[in-house]
């Protein structure tokens, strides 16, 4: 196992991590602030990918595809929040899970009807094709681009939450929502804004993932489950937690799948290792989550309350 391979897998892990972060940021804010479980967050990721792919195919401009993916999911998120989800904030979690699960079924069916049951593929945009030489390590330019976008979004979100008036209200609303309202802030509008922001980021994640994976109905659910692992590991409601949690989960998953089977071969008989390796590797992130829950139930980077 060479250093080059290890570094490549580490970078792949970071790349998966920032993608997970884009998806988890909205999920963790909505869960942490409105105490609302939105399973249909993965649908916004899927539809963002479809919107972006359609715009990219039609115009050939990746920039326009980004605008379509983020703008489209932002609008859709806003509509879904106002029409359906805002009525569920006061209900119990089981109702929220059932209703948003219903939304998943609807959105998957809408995608199947609109774009067909088979996968849609888009190419890596022209300027991002090829590899970059990183001190002797050749790494795909597009994956580096994803890492760059993810880090930029993370910095922007950090500044938004910690340096602006809107960020103060978001944090205040997460701790004592009734007082935010009683001091003159329209909480419903604040919630809608946070929800739409999260939806836009989910759509962006969907588009960024589209050239690497295929765009298809139901693509949002597997990654939503991983995003839930991310926010539980990082600490619910915390953007910082979502960022580090996503990196941890991304790296553990990627590096685990790449190297765990080989590691097991050193300790177990070849046939046993061949059987156990991939199975164990795919369980690894859940084992990490279980470990975190056992030792730090509030997550690794919970929201600070003094």
């Amino acid at each position: 196992m060479s250093v080059i391979v290890l570094l490549t897998q580490l970078l792949n892990g970071v790349q998966l991590g920032v993608l997970l972060f884009l998806l988890s940021a909205g999920l963790t804010l909505v869960f942490g602030i409105m105490n609302f479980i939105n399973l249909s967050h993965g649908s916004l990721y899927m539809l963002g990918a479809y919107f972006g792919a359609a715009a990219y195919t039609a115009t050939g401009s990746f920039l326009l595809a980004v605008v379509a993916a983020t703008g489209g999911s932002l609008l859709l998120g806003l509509i879904v929040e106002r029409v359906a989800l805002a009525r569920l904030y006061a209900r119990e979690h089981l109702d929220q899970v059932l209703a948003t699960f219903g939304l998943i079924l609807i959105f998957n069916e809408v995608a199947r009807v609109t774009w067909g049951p088979s996968s849609v593929y888009i190419d890596v945009p022209g300027t991002l094709v090829g590899a970059v030489d990183l001190l002797g390590l050749s790494y795909p330019r597009y994956r580096l681009f994803i890492i760059g976008v993810g880090v930029a979004v993370a910095v922007a979100l950090y500044l938004l939450i910690h340096r602006t008036r809107l960020g103060m209200l978001i944090r205040a609303g997460a701790s004592v929502p009734t007082m935010v309202g009683a001091l003159g802030v329209n909480l419903a509008r604040l919630n809608a804004l946070v929800f739409a922001l999260g939806a836009a980021l989910a759509g962006l994640a969907g588009l960024l993932a589209a050239p690497l994976m295929s765009v298809q109905p139901g693509m949002g659910e597997p990654i939503l489950i991983v995003a839930l692992v991310v926010i539980v590991t990082g600490g619910i409601g915390s953007i910082r937690g979502a960022f580090y949690g996503a990196l941890i989960v991304g790296i553990v998953d990627t590096v685990g799948r790449a190297f765990l089977p080989e590691l097991l071969r050193l300790m177990l008989s070849p046939s046993l290792a061949r059987a156990a390796g991939p199975a164990l590797a795919s369980m690894l992130i859940y084992l990490v989550m279980a470990g975190v829950l056992a030792l730090r139930p509030q997550g690794l980077f919970p929201v600070k309350h003094g």
Binding site: M168, R171, A174, A182, G306
Partner: peptide, 19 residues
């Protein structure tokens, strides 16, 4: 309010400015 309802995760300055 009763119990004061301070935003515990905001600084004093932010508590005053936010709303």
């Amino acid at each position: 309010p009763e119990g004061r309802g301070i935003f515990p995760n905001l600084t004093v300055r932010e508590n005053l400015v936010a709303t």
